[in-house]
Amino acid sequence: MKKVTLQLEELVCPTCAKKIEAALNKVDGVDDVNVLFNASKAKINFDETKIDSEKITKVITDLGYEVLNVK
């Protein structure tokens, strides 16, 4: 189990945060997602044997949101 925090571009609507959460939850290997709307951050617990932080980042960029940094 690993944890990653992604700083996203400024999230404009709470529904965007919901959308990212919903999409990530459907990805295999992702255990727990918390998208902070005001902080514009996504905190994700994932199984490192199934997925890595690059793939997680890609899901978010596919949805149309920029990922500013990964920590």
Binding site: C13, K19, A22, A23, K26, D62, L63, G64
Partner: peptide, 19 residues
């Protein structure tokens, strides 16, 4: 264009957004 792109991106993960 970018609205539609985001919409399709979301649909790929079975999420229906405002876009």
């Amino acid at each position: 264009y970018s609205i539609a792109k985001n919409a399709i991106g979301a649909l790929r993960y079975k999420v229906l957004g405002i876009e």
